[in-house]
């Protein structure tokens, strides 16, 4: 597999030293080479900022009712309009970012961590452990994902934590499977062989050589999964299985309010839907850019 001329020959992330100047150089290099990715990163950062500081950023309290302004269209004081309880939709979208991004983050981080551990162990040690692990992962992946999530949420009840759990199962299997195949190819590379010949222990090999080499893949997968996790949460909420009200989550705003008032108050459905689409779009663009930038070999994964 050839790398593509003209891209930054980053290869793998430098695992020698994470000195500050290096980080800065990598960042600047990324922004120059991938402006679209950089813009996406800014969009995501802005959303994360808004989510973190929702109470400062948003104009109102997300649960503040205003019976004088029920289902009022977009105005200067309520740019996204108000909902059926007179709550400010913009504020709820901002607070919704909290829930949706948190679910995305939790799913990505936990499935990334678990997937990395399972994938690396299985791929590196191989043999019977590997075969059994792959079998289990395959079994998990064979499950229709959304149906599994629906069954789990039905079983456990709908709360933010349970939604995360339900989405997590399928994601972890996919991440682990991809990491494992990546580890397989890293394991057989010349420098791992060389390191092994010098008498490096398994632990040292794993920590110094194998893991750093799968990190780029993990980052790319993470940013793509982030978007998908938000969509799955949206789908669950759409079916009424998301986090319960009055929690403002984009999926629920779209389904329960957006659908109910589609004809009379379209802003209830349009804004959360747009914001969700933009967020997922940004994560995908960023994932793409990261993939191209970090390791051209990963194209197609």
């Amino acid at each position: 597999m050839t790398s593509i001329e003209g891209t930054t020959p980053a290869g793998a992330l430098p695992y020698g030293g994470w000195r500050e100047w290096r980080v800065r150089r990598v960042l600047i290099g990324f922004v120059r080479a991938r402006p679209l990715g950089a813009v996406s990163a800014c969009v995501i950062l802005a959303m994360a900022f808004a989510a973190l500081f929702a109470s400062v950023v948003s104009p109102y309290d997300p649960n503040l009712k205003n019976t004088a302004l029920l289902l009022d269209g977009p105005t200067l004081s309520h740019p996204f309009g108000t909902d059926q309880l007179g709550r400010d939709v913009l504020t709820r979208v901002i607070y919704g970012a909290r829930i949706t991004l948190f679910i995305g983050l939790a799913v990505t981080a936990v499935s990334g961590g678990l997937g990395l551990a399972i994938g690396v162990t299985s791929g590196y040690f191989g043999g019977r452990v590997d075969r059994i692990t792959v079998m289990l992962l395959d079994a998990m992946m064979a499950f229709p994902g959304l149906i599994l999530a629906i069954a789990l949420v039905t079983a456990l009840g709908s709360s933010v934590l349970n939604v995360i759990l339900a989405v997590l199962v399928g994601f972890t299997a996919r991440v682990a499977r991809l990491i494992r195949s990546n580890v397989l190819s890293v394991r057989s590379t010349a420098y791992v062989d060389a390191a092994r010949a010098t008498g490096a222990t398994n632990v040292r090999l794993l920590v110094r050589h194998v893991v750093p080499n799968v990190v780029p893949l993990l980052i790319v997968l993470g940013s793509l999964n982030f978007g998908v996790a938000m969509l799955v949460e949206g789908s669950l909420s759409f079916l009424g299985l998301g986090p319960p009200p009055p929690t403002p989550s984009w999926g629920r705003m779209l389904s329960s309010e957006g659908q109910q008032f589609f004809r009379s108050a379209p802003w209830l459905g349009i804004f959360p839907g747009l914001v969700l689409a933009v967020a997922v779009f940004a994560f995908n663009l960023l994932g793409d850019a990261l993939r191209d930038h970090l390791d051209p070999r990963l194209r197609g994964s």
Partner: peptide, 9 residues
Amino acid sequence: LGLAAPSFW
């Protein structure tokens, strides 16, 4: 964009 647009929407 095709991947990002929520199908229910």
